[in-house]
Design a binder for these strands. Structure first.
Lengths: 211, 211
DNA sequence: GACATCGGTGTACGGGTGTGCACCGAAATA
DNA sequence: TATTTCGGTGCACACCCGTACACCGATGTC
């Protein structure tokens, strides 16, 4: 066992966690290297032993965001398969919100979409969101097959759902917890509208005339 | 006529424009008072003759954003009433994208949603977006009446549409112009899904069974 | 024409920023 | 055990930040 490498990993984690904690308030872009070092109980210079840049740290943060998202997808799939109680939509979004509340620091990063940060960081975050959307597309298609309700434009529908959930979800994070439930209901309702629309299109229902 | 007040208004505008220009790159939050002053060809201290704070400037920017949005709504309504060519959805979103490209600095602010900025600024921006959504709700209801296609949950549908248009639109702004058209089409398609869903719900189509 | 108003300027301050340099001490290696 | 490696430290530098102060000069008022 390597006490050397272990301790290095430990302070690296401390740096990442500190950055996460500080970023939740005003975004990653507005956090200084020195502030992170102080929060991690580290001399500012020690930062460079772990990351080349603040941008470099940003990529590490994006990685962790992606990790958390994939974990979310896995758990949501398991939960939906396990018990068929309640609607798939509500269950999934509820789980999403729980995740967001637990790892609120991470999800605040996600919500901001990296606005105001370096292009590299922004790209990395958007990539993770895209991966998440792809997973959702799979689920939509699978669910459509098993429930025998075909769905039109699954990619577009998924993108719309993810956009709404992330935006309103982010919005909900800095709301008192007694209002968060209402936001969750709004997300669920809007996602259902999208579901219904995609199904209606697949079924040929409605007006191709003038929209 | 007051040469005094006129010149004051002029440099005030110069400050606002400079702030807008600088904010488009990395967001309003990451722009310094000194940088704004330099961009406006002004001594840093002169800033205080016009605004108390950077926050104060932020509110002025939010005001201008709101102004531009209301102008957009007015023109879109006129355009839709004038000629019935093409779909309402496509026409509206096309006009939205044109606006966004012209005043791209303003819309970049909007897109960021004020992430990473002061709470006051964020609230102001979100308020303007909310007003815009309200206007859209009106239009949806009116359109539903004249076209005799009732729509369910117009507020939720409008919120979903605005969220998607703003997010993807913002996304499109830092894309080469030859790819923007594709994004526009994606927005149109997703908004149509929402339309169809809201109409299907109103018509009672589809499954209240298990979703 | 004398005076007050006020937008704009230059200087200066205390503090925060990223980062280069020399150094220490413990773990890893020989 | 002697030597190398390397994570961590303290100091120092040059720069940018917001903003307080005293001041100027043109415009507006009496």
């Amino acid at each position: 066992m390597s006490s050397r490498a272990a301790q290095k990993e430990q302070t690296r984690r401390a740096i990442v966690d500190a950055a996460l904690r500080l970023s939740s308030a005003r975004g990653f872009a507005s956090v200084s290297l020195r502030a992170i070092a102080k929060e991690a109980n580290i001399a500012p210079n020690a930062f460079y032993r772990h990351f080349k840049d603040l941008d470099d740290l940003g990529l590490a943060l994006a990685d962790q965001v992606g990790l958390s998202l994939r974990q979310l997808v896995r758990q949501a799939r398991r939960r939906v398969l396990d018990a068929g109680d309640g609607s798939v939509v509500r269950n999934s979004i509820q789980m999403f919100m729980e995740f967001a509340e637990n790892d609120s620091d991470l999800f605040r990063l996600l919500l901001g979409g990296g606005a105001g940060a370096s292009p590299a960081f922004r790209r990395a975050i958007q990539l993770e969101v895209k991966r998440f959307t792809s997973d959702l597309v799979e689920d939509l298609i699978r669910e459509a097959e098993t429930s025998r309700r075909p769905i039109a434009h699954p990619e577009l529908a998924a993108e719309a759902m993810v956009t709404i959930a992330f935006n309103l979800g982010a919005n909900a994070l800095d709301l008192p917890s007694d209002q968060r439930l209402a936001v969750l209901e709004r997300i669920v309702a809007e996602v259902r509208i999208i579901m219904r629309g995609a199904e209606a299109m697949a079924a040929g229902w409605g007006s191709p005339a003038k929209d």
